[in-house]
Nucleic acid binder design. Structure first.
Lengths: 338, 338
DNA sequence: TTGTAAGCGTTATCAA
DNA sequence: TTGATAACGCTTACAA
């Protein structure tokens, strides 16, 4: 840890600038000199300091990824996509978990700024609008992922949540369901709101009255789905189908149904959102709306890079992925009551 | 991004050293002066540079976490544990995915060293012994997690894989199974080897001959489990139970069994390893060996911190967690053939 | 082609 | 209590 560019220069019998040049491939260097430098560096086990480098370059080649919880199966996919694109471009990523806590979000972002990340990919709560605005105002490149933040003028990559929910509920309606409940996600996230919106829209276009009592909010976890499922299934008349805010919730709902002695899909149809691995593994397979999470992560990082390098500037761009309805085994035709 | 400690000093009408003192809480500063500095910093929106700070302190307050794949449900838990402990201590973590590729492992570690992380938590392949040795020799604090690396003299936190496998197989044996196959993990990981060892040991102590044909290696994925399951179930005589290298593999095996028209646990008992969330969600619930992944992550970070701060020095320590057999629905008594 | 030296933004030493 | 000032390790004009 003690060997610096100076040591390398000395050992190679050249100036530090020359060492810098060969190591960075900038400027002309005689082949023979280059050899000597490389040899010296190798012999000394020289590890250049990106700290020092970053200080002068005003670039750290690092980015920050701020997500709610890596433990929620949806985020590892996004994270992997981001990481893949980042490391291909020579960047390293800082990971921060916020649990959707606005205070933690602010804290993490602050830390990242102190670390002088070149950009931030942010999956945050709706409340964080000012946070993002400030970042933007301060010229920190960033892209907001998965959730839309107000009308902030930022690069955003997400899926059409409203449309996805709409497709999911239409599917249910086509199957003959009328009493469709919604086990909703986190109410303070735009994602949760948009999916709820799609649900509502589907009912409307089918001429089904929207019943506020048929939607129960929670958060995006399995446990929440279980609790909300219990509530919903205790209602009378009982819903014949439930559209869940995401797959974890859907799985929790199914668990609650089972415990209530209900069979899915015979007594209850369930649709999720995301298409995490678990959804394809459980039996029956979960009907859901697929989100290309990994590609979304890649794209977000690619867009961030364009901002960092200045290849792109100007108003925020939006890339909206079209989700895809994946019909598996948890949905089934509702036989008309005799 | 342009405001520096100098600007703050000027605005507060003090020297930079004073600003540094109040911001870091080091040394004496008159209350009134402190106020002025704080005000100036706030007014200017000053964000101290950890790059510059790290350069002089020779500490970056960052750590690197190197894992195979965040997409494998076991690692988010570990990652979260590490992150929790890290952020509590004021550290930020760099995340690297290696896909168990030795070349990538080396590359990522190099990157982390350049970034001057204060320490590294490493989940790598057995082959990387030299890599770890070099790190140690260079005085980079580190702890190896989940997998044991040779007899390298490093802090290590893992679970007793041999014992866990032993417990799993004993369970199967107690249930009356004799033809027990092993859908093994990645052969080049110590983890995979140890679990295989426990499997073998259980058979031996029960007086069951170890049959090399009954163990098939793959990697720690669902797909691998599916493929290996097909192979194993095609054997004659067919095994009545399969011990899988981890939960994902177990789930893949179960899928293969289903497709072969076999019922789990009636025709085949299956036990996994890890106890990821999915294992509790699927029906029937997967019998498995629980690993306290999140706590392991926390502990690893805590141990790393002790090295970084110099609170602990000397030979590598090992913390071996005792795994716990969780019996759920995929294992069942083997009725003696009539 | 290559070397010298001036920063980059902080901390820490030494006086005052 | 506080202020200069010398590092920290590297990049980049500017000269040579």
């Amino acid at each position: 840890m003690a060997v610096t560019i100076r040591d390398v220069a000395q050992r190679a019998g050249v100036g530090v600038a020359t060492v810098s040049r060969v190591l960075n491939g900038t400027g002309y260097v005689k082949a023979e000199t280059r050899e000597r430098v490389l040899e010296a560096a190798a012999a000394l086990g020289y590890v250049p300091s990106q700290l020092a480098r970053g200080l002068v370059r005003h670039l750290s080649d690092t980015v920050g990824l701020v997500i709610p919880d890596i433990t929620n199966p949806f985020f590892p996919l996004i994270t992997r996509g981001v990481e893949d694109a980042a490391s291909e471009a020579g960047y390293t990523v800082f990971l921060c978990n916020t649990d959707n806590d606005p205070a933690l979000e602010a804290h993490d972002v602050q830390k990242l700024r102190e670390r002088r990340v070149d950009g931030i990919i942010f999956v945050g709560t709706t409340e964080r609008r000012e946070l993002v605005d400030r970042l933007l105002a301060d010229g920190v490149p960033m892209v907001v992922m998965d959730r839309q933040l107000g009308h902030a003028d930022v690069d955003t990559v997400l899926v059409d949540n409203r449309w996805g929910a709409l497709a999911a509920c239409r599917h249910l309606i086509e199957l003959g369901h009328r009493r469709i409940a919604h086990a909703a996600g986190h109410q303070s996230t735009r994602t949760g709101q948009d999916r709820h919106e799609g649900y509502r829209e589907a009912l409307e276009e089918a001429g089904i009255a929207y019943d506020p009592a048929a939607v129960v909010w929670g958060d995006f976890t399995y446990e929440s789905g279980y609790r909300v499922g219990q509530v919903l299934l205790g209602r009378y008349p009982r819903p014949t189908a439930i559209f869940a805010g995401n797959d974890l919730i859907a799985l929790g709902v199914i668990r609650a149904a089972e415990e209530a002695g209900l069979s899915v899909p015979d007594d209850l149809s369930v649709v999720g959102f995301d298409d995490i691995q678990m959804s394809a593994v459980v039996r029956p397979g979960l009907t859901t709306v697929r989100q290309p999470a990994r590609e979304m992560g890649r794209l977000a990082m690619a867009m961030l890079l364009e901002r960092i390098t200045g290849k792109v500037s100007g108003p925020g761009r939006r890339h909206v992925f079209q989700p895809e309805l994946i019909v598996r085994g948890t949905t089934r035709r509702r036989e008309p009551l005799a």
